[in-house]
Structures are given as structure tokens and as C-alpha cells.
Amino acid sequence: MSDQEPVPGFGVAVVREDGKWRCDPMDSSALGELDAAVGELRKIRSTGAVFGLLAIDDEFFLLLRPGPGGVSLLLSDAAAALDYDIAADALEALRVDPPEDEDEVWPEGSLDILADLGLPAPELQVIVDEIDLYPDEQLSMIAQRIGFDAEFSKVLDAVLK
């Protein structure tokens, strides 16, 4: 834990088990450090899919999905690593150097992170490319496309109050 100010935004842990979706808010510490976010997701016991959706400071989002072989990540804007520790952590985990110009916007990581759940890489690319949308709007599009938008909206309503 750091003594820094909390990072604005929210995190949602998403679980699919026995054909049903469940969404739970993540602790705010998950927004500041990648290890905290991954640790929180790894504590969830499920035989189904478990992944996290993080929206950081109305600037970018991060998808993370722990698995036996490590963590799959998708950072919606690589330039966010210039200003946010969690984005820098994500690029470090992906072994990618941060961009030199913060005006360049491109995703970094695994666009097929949710392909097995019904969101193929090309469709996720379209959502990521919607740079005029806020991260929560992009994450809502992901939730709608995969089929857990009702559960996601309930958590979003609770955390954004």
C-alpha cells in the first residue's frame, strides 16, 4: 500500500460460473497498483471465468484476467503509463516501453482477452478505438456485448453514487 492519494475510478470483478454472471466492486486499492488488482482477483474462487474491469480517472481502462500461466492484460491507452502507476505496471508486465508522446493513443496487450467469452479481438478493437467515449462507457459496451450488462450496471450505479 502506498501513501499516495487514491486514484479516481472504479474496479469491477466479473465472474461467470454455472452459466450465470456476477459482478462485484473491487477495492479502491486495485486502481493504484496492478499487483493489488491481480491479488484481489486471484482471491476469487471460481471454476468459471474471472476477470477485472478497471476504469481509471475517466482516462483509460484496463482489463485483467489472471490464469494459471500468468495474467492477460489489455490497457486501452499505452500513453497512460506516463501519468498513472497502474498503467506503467501493466506495460512493464507486458514488457513494452511506454510511448514518448502522450498524444498517441493505442491499446497494448491482448485484444483477444475475452474472445472465449464472446468478444473477439476485432470487436474489442472497435470498442477501444472509440476514444471519444469515457472508460465506463467503453466497459459498459463490453459488458453488453458479452451479456453481463445488467449485473455490471447495478455495480456501476452503486460505486458511482
Rank of each mutant, 00 (worst) to 15 (best):
E5L: 15
P6C: 06
V7N: 04
G9I: 04
F10C: 04
V12N: 01
D18M: 12
D18Q: 11
W21V: 03
W21R: 08
C23D: 01
C23H: 00
M26R: 03
D27W: 11
S28N: 13
S29L: 07
A30D: 05
L31K: 03
L34N: 07
A36G: 08
A37V: 12
V38M: 06
E40R: 03
E40Q: 10
I44W: 03
I44G: 06
I44A: 00
R45Y: 01
T47I: 07
A49H: 07
V50D: 02
V50P: 01
F51G: 02
G52V: 09
L53Q: 10
L53H: 00
A55M: 12
E59H: 14
F61T: 02
F61D: 05
F61E: 05
L62V: 05
G67T: 12
G69S: 15
G69Q: 12
S72M: 06
L73C: 08
L73K: 02
L73M: 11
L74R: 01
L75T: 07
D77Y: 01
A79R: 00
A81M: 07
A81P: 02
D83I: 11
I86A: 06
A88D: 08
D89I: 06
D89T: 03
A90L: 04
A90E: 05
L91E: 00
A93F: 11
R95D: 15
R95T: 14
R95V: 13
P98A: 13
P99S: 11
V105H: 12
P107Q: 05
P107V: 07
P107T: 08
G109R: 00
I113F: 06
A115E: 10
D116H: 11
L117F: 08
P120T: 05
P122S: 14
L124K: 06
Q125D: 15
V126S: 14
I127P: 03
D129T: 08
I131Q: 14
D132V: 13
L133V: 05
Y134M: 14
Y134L: 15
D136Q: 11
L139K: 00
L139Q: 10
M141G: 14
A143G: 08
I146D: 06
I146F: 11
F148D: 00
D149H: 15
A150K: 12
E151H: 00
E151P: 01
S153C: 10
K154I: 14
K154Y: 10
L156A: 10
V159A: 11
L160M: 13
K161Y: 09
